[in-house]
């Protein structure tokens, strides 16, 4: 039982990180139907920028409290990622609006390669470790270990998602976003500057990516110029699982994927009588995805009417 609780805790923490990154994919997709393959790289840049700032502040010997240092690190990473997303949209995606659907996909791959290599030039090839700034306390929950960092990550992710929901459903910007995602041209006719809305979607997604980057690197204690790729891929999978273009779907998909991975790695051996082991963890996750999509071709919460081809 304690093993099961522990796997649940593992899965939920992992899932909330996936969910946060998945939101970035799904927002952009919901509005212009583009898979922003380079979104994972924003997470990487966010992690490395905040890490650099944190190290700088620690080295400066100002005697700042650790929590403040981390907050300042994130605060520095957010505008950098937002600016990067802004430039990315302007240079690589906007000129291709109306181009064949796969053209922006290739530029996205190009952007991803460029960002990785620039990051490699700036930060070098080594893995960075996250300094043990935060004093992690471990609690005992029914025999399972739960750290305050995990609680904080889940809470912060939840808070950010709630904030995003508020923006989308309660503000004029959100109204414009929803209108644009319904129909870009008609929204334009209603006086919405669709370019501004699209930029907003990119930039908000980038801010979330910056936070997610810092979260991932502090949770796993590691950051590297290549870290964005795998994370982006998983988050993209999560977004599709939940129904891409749907904010609630991204959260649900992220959470589910985290749980599937944790429980899959934990119990796949028992389920198959020891024939398959944790090496099939990702296979398990993809089978669940394919199974879901066969039953619901637009994902769990996706609306098949808004499906694009």
């Amino acid at each position: 039982m304690d093993t099961f609780i522990q796997q649940l805790i593992n899965g939920i923490t992992l899932g909330s990180v996936y969910a946060l990154v998945a939101l970035g994919y799904t927002m952009v997709y919901g509005i212009i139907g583009l898979i922003n393959f380079a979104h994972g790289e924003l997470v990487m840049v966010g992690a490395l920028v905040s890490l650099s700032v944190i190290k700088l502040l620690m080295g400066a010997g100002l005697g700042l409290p650790p929590v403040l240092i981390v907050v300042l690190g994130v605060a520095a990473a957010i505008p950098v990622c937002m600016l990067l997303a802004f430039v990315m949209e302007r240079v690589a995606y906007r000129p291709l609006r109306g181009a064949p659907r796969l053209a922006p996909l290739i530029t996205a791959i190009g952007v991803s390669i460029v960002l990785q290599n620039i990051a490699m030039m700036i930060w070098g090839r080594s893995y960075f470790s996250f300094p043990p700034l935060l004093n992690v306390t471990t609690y005992d929950v029914g025999g399972a270990a739960l750290t305050d960092l995990q609680v904080f990550i889940v809470l912060l992710a939840g808070l950010l998602m709630a904030g995003l929901m508020w923006i989308v459903h309660r503000t004029r910007l959100g109204l414009a976003m929803r209108a644009t995602s319904q129909n870009l041209q008609v929204a334009g006719l209603m006086g919405i500057d669709s370019n501004r809305i699209i930029v907003a979607a990119f930039v908000i997604g980038a801010a979330l990516a910056a936070v997610a980057g810092t979260m991932v690197s502090s949770y796993y204690g590691i950051a590297h110029y290549y870290m964005g790729f795998m994370l982006g891929l998983k988050a993209f999978t999560a977004a599709v699982l939940g129904g891409i273009g749907n904010l609630g779907g991204a959260m649900l998909g992220g959470m589910l994927l985290g749980l599937i991975e944790a429980l899959g790695a934990g119990y796949i051996g028992d389920l198959t009588g020891g024939i398959l082991g944790s090496n099939y963890q990702d296979v398990f996750a993809f089978f669940v995805l394919i199974g879901v999509l066969i039953v619901r071709p637009a994902g769990l919460l996706g609306n098949s009417n808004t499906e694009r081809s």
Partner: peptide, 14 residues
């Protein structure tokens, strides 16, 4: 390419 090992470690712990 992994960074999360908690699931397998939890299993091992048992």
């Amino acid at each position: 390419k992994s960074t999360d090992f908690k699931a397998i470690l939890t299993k091992i712990k048992g």
